[in-house]
Design a protein around this nucleic acid. Structure first.
Lengths: 109, 109
DNA sequence: TCTATAGTTCGGTAATTAACGAACAATTGA
DNA sequence: TCAATTGTTCGTTAATTACCGAACTATAGA
């Protein structure tokens, strides 16, 4: 099977990570992995074609945000929390918390 | 003179902020404001045309990352730290620290 | 071996983006 | 009032991006 390329920890670039996280769909994906743990693509509740989802998964993986491992026909995605915390301390947590806060916001008006 | 539109605090969107910060040039601008305080565009050390710089300044302002005020012919940009901290606690600091860390990284290999 | 499941890759389209220079607007100071 | 400074806007170009469906690969299970 195909080799899934993941950047080494020190090759993870801030602007690339921020770009990967700047898309609402990818933010949803990351948030869902955070909430429910390692997830296969088929479990993501996003309203896009599977080819599009596959591309988003690739973007996240190549940015160093997620790790993908193959199990059977599935690709399980997890967050590279340790690598990200080591390289950009506090960043992932801040984004995840911001993400949750934003989703609870209609009351703030 | 033209009105400079700034989003209200509660209208600042996470994905928009992350997108604004995902461009290396804009990250440099934000980092320089953080280091040296409120800055006019002419002070930014970036190697792009001034029309391009003006567009980047607009992107940051419209995302809610910076505030722009007019003083004479200058536009002074500052970070909306308070608004951002209120809305997305810890996010801006994490990005700024990540930014600094990345710029000191050649030793990490 | 055949079928279903899970993802990936490819080709194409439409939209967005970053970049530039030229022209413009606003303000300051001579 | 005139020139210099500072920044914005406009028109264009080239590159990137998000999206889709169709075709493909790989694995699991009947």
């Amino acid at each position: 099977m195909k080799i899934l390329h993941h950047p080494a920890r020190n090759d993870i670039m801030l602007s690339t990570v921020l770009h990967a996280l700047s898309d609402p769909i990818r933010l949803q994906i990351v948030s869902q992995i955070h909430k429910h743990g390692e997830q296969a693509c088929k479990n993501f509740e996003v309203s896009i074609a599977k080819s599009t989802l596959s591309q988003h998964a690739r973007t996240l993986r190549e940015a160093g945000v997620t790790r993908t491992r193959a199990v059977g026909t599935q690709r399980l995605l997890s967050l590279r929390s340790e690598d990200l915390n080591e390289r950009f301390p506090g960043l992932l947590d801040a984004v995840l918390r911001s993400c949750e806060q934003e989703n609870l916001d209609p009351a703030s008006l």
